[in-house]
Design a protein around this nucleic acid. Sequence first.
DNA 1: TTGAAAGCGCTAACAG
DNA 2: CTGTTAGCGCTTTCAA
Lengths: 367, 367
Amino acid sequence: MTVLLHVIFEDFIMGRRLQAIAAEGVKVQRATLREVAVMAGVHPATASRALNEQTVSLVNAETAARIKKIAAEMGYSPNPIARSLKTSRSATIGLVIPDLTNPLFPPIVRGVEDVLRSVGYSAWIVNTDNRPDVEKAAVDSFRQRNVEGFVFATAHLKHPLLDELAAASTPMVLVNRRSASADIPSVTSDDAAGVAMAMQHLVELGHTKIVHLAGPQDLSTGVNRRRAFMSNLEDLHLPSEKGRSVICEEWSEEAGAKAMRALLDSGPEFTAVLAGNDLLALGVYDALSERGLRCPHDVSVVGFNDMPFMDKVSPPMTSVRIPQYDIGAEAARLLLEVLNDPDRHPRSLLLPLTLSVRSSTGPVPES
Amino acid sequence: MTVLLHVIFEDFIMGRRLQAIAAEGVKVQRATLREVAVMAGVHPATASRALNEQTVSLVNAETAARIKKIAAEMGYSPNPIARSLKTSRSATIGLVIPDLTNPLFPPIVRGVEDVLRSVGYSAWIVNTDNRPDVEKAAVDSFRQRNVEGFVFATAHLKHPLLDELAAASTPMVLVNRRSASADIPSVTSDDAAGVAMAMQHLVELGHTKIVHLAGPQDLSTGVNRRRAFMSNLEDLHLPSEKGRSVICEEWSEEAGAKAMRALLDSGPEFTAVLAGNDLLALGVYDALSERGLRCPHDVSVVGFNDMPFMDKVSPPMTSVRIPQYDIGAEAARLLLEVLNDPDRHPRSLLLPLTLSVRSSTGPVPES
DNA sequence: TTGAAAGCGCTAACAG
DNA sequence: CTGTTAGCGCTTTCAA
């Protein structure tokens, strides 16, 4: 009886489409679950159960096998929109970054993407240019689309939006930077260790008078690197007056050049510069050559991040290398962990980094 | 009567949620269209009409205003998933690129994203690493998610998948590269003009013996630049034996170095090199310095693309600058045009480029 | 183990 | 101008 009904249904309601689909390749349109069910002579609910890993055990093994076979033949794959509407899930996450044209971020994106893809997830990417309104709009839009979590590369130390999301226990992971409030899981490089390595390297070359160009102090990277610099100065018993660290308003070549000029004009004596990132270090190059100083002959320079092409600039730049790809990949893994087990205690990861030694650092000049 | 019904409905079915929403800020969850309709005392269909630009004219002006006001108060915004399920649209497009870590692509992505955002659209980005299987899977996944069109930065001259999509008249635009088959709309830079500019520049410096490192010949960029080089040689009455253009298997520094070594070992005489892109040109730098040759003193070098930091390498590289951001932006505009009017005849755009003259090119050496 | 029924939130005929 | 009805394609109680 039910079989008869199915046949009737098939003939009258779905006949043409099903025939077309059966005539392999003529996929008029994507097959639906209902059509698979009709072909298999079962109710759509049964087909649904058979086709989902979680529920296939509820279905008679042979029936399930038959349904799967037919689904495969018909090239069926579930409509993620319909599924998402029903389940409020989406197998997607939101990835919020400041600016893709900053070479820091593409490797992170790749890391996130690759790990997510391996489990059938994907990421929505958005660039915010650090504009809170854009970020807010993007997050809203993502939530409407049922993203299951977020990866933020935009964290500021004070970051109301992140606090809000954390309060609502939205699954998320911060990359590259951390936020002061709430213990939001994060994946960052071990900046303090990186600074120590860089300074160790300079000290081994004989440098004792070192200065630091610090990045913006509303970002964890800016603060952490500066703090590490100051405490390493003391630990190494090097001169550590306050003026040895200059704060730059932004991570830009121009800001670096400006700070360097100020140091040359009225700062303490120094033979080496540790820059908060590579762009600042490039600014140092500019300021040095303006003043007729040579690197590393007169001043050694160390950058941070080891962006692409830092081995090609002149002189090739010694820089602290950050494992960008791994940061992205680990962030994705952490987020997936949280999604799989919402009660899991949030972990944060501190990834090791290495020093790329090149020729912008050399022995301390003889005075 | 209908009002009474609404009240009853409100009280018994949706009471708690609506009260919570009314108590400003306590947004338990996003308001739905149905809830807005109840609050406004209208049918959901009416609310839907009032809230959509296309259909608001079908609704009494005052009623529409009231509905809009209430919707705003409730913080209503339509659920894109539900809308997409119903309409098969999504206000999204798929953006398919080979690899985001290639500095060529981020500006293109930004251009696409910015234009789309201005009209409420957004882009799904995927990296394919030039793997056809990944590309196919990504396109499938995009289609299931009802993307309304595609931007491809992965086009090969022979590209079955693109042909297939074109045959199904899928809205799409190619960027940066073109495909041989079908007249798929594209936005590219005017490579021939760029080559001409570069060669003109070299000729003005006195160079007559020029060679070319061509990129892969399965890509339109590789072919077009090479063709332009050959025909410019003839137009300028310069030596144009076949060996003056060497084909590299890939756009990489190593491939460039290899080709350059071959030219130095057994190629024709030359005083200038036009590289198919900047990476190849960097390879030229490497090969030259291996042989103790100086640039531009012994050999002038011109790159293509003017990637970030090409002004920082040593020597700063003269390169043909491509308007990446604009390419992305124009591609998005073209795609939106097609989406708004599917019958529109597909246009292709050829964007002008400029030459960034730096110190890797200089006067021809005195022999 | 399977089917029936309901509904996620929205829009689009069709009536009235 | 507005309400009724139906359904996009799927999952998930509940009942049998």
